[in-house]
Amino acid sequence: MPASNGGASPRRAGSDSRDSRGLAPPEGDTTAGGAEPIPTTAPAPIKAVPVRHPGRWVAIAVLAVLAAMLVNTILTNDGFRWDVVGKYLFSPPVLNGLKNTLLLTVLSMLIGIVGGIALAIMRLSPNPVLSYVAGLYIWLFRGTPLIAQLLFWNFLAALYPRLSLGIPFGPEFVSFDTNQLINQFTACLLGLGLNEAAYMAEIVRGGLQSVDHGQSEAAGALGMSRGQTLRRIVLPQAMRVIVPPTGNETISMLKTTSLVVVIGYFELMTSVQRIYSVNFQTIPLLIVAALWYLALTSILSIGQGFVERRYGRGVHQGPTGARLLPRRKTAGAK
């Protein structure tokens, strides 16, 4: 075995340098053609002039000019009114709206994720009733406009003035005034959260189904129950697929919360609109909102990076990942 290895390696080195003949300095050619391998201790590293990319430099130059123009107009055009932006960026009504945006986003995403996981598990359950009910829910909540759902929850009292817990057609145990139970904020959460759950359910289902069936089989063969298998084996692996679209959903939810204006509630966008409808400083106030949304989105993206690294363990290391990257690079160079 070692003997044959020793014979093979100089031949391989020779063919390598022949492949790169176009790049290699001329001395490389003589060693490649040489009949007897030179008895060196270590092979000399390739000294090649790297490929030039003139196109890249042109592109960078064009972009630099455009960027300079952009900065120039932002600084010199008085229409931006940066003084107004500065005045309102941290003003109490804007911060109040920001607080509601955050609260609504976090809570409705929480409802959406928990509900989505539950719905996805139901959808994949061997019990046909559970699976069907989950399918019906997803169909209904994805199939009707979110605005209609928000209005529905807000005006539930018109449909059911009192809500009660009890046996159908039998006695009631407790009963509530609907308007007291569901205030505006709760209606917002119900509308946003329950709608989000339907979308999250499909994301989670895709994630669960992406995990190789052999994984749950191996866990089952070890005597783990279905619940343990889901929690310890399948869900953690599915997270890798679930997290990126969930990041999308969260960022999208930041802005979707502005729909709560239809039931008279307010958040960042509504606050800003209220201010510019009075003082007509539309563009500066839209910039205020945009800056806050950008800030929140940046924080979320960083958070997403952390979560992705947490669930990418065992996947990014190893030979397959390392082999994929250079291959893509060579494909791009052609």
Partner: peptide, 15 residues
């Protein structure tokens, strides 16, 4: 629990 199984494709938990 009392029956161990080894698969053709290993099925180790990659995470």
């Amino acid at each position: 629990r009392d029956i161990g199984m080894v698969f053709q494709r290993f099925n180790l938990f990659p995470h």
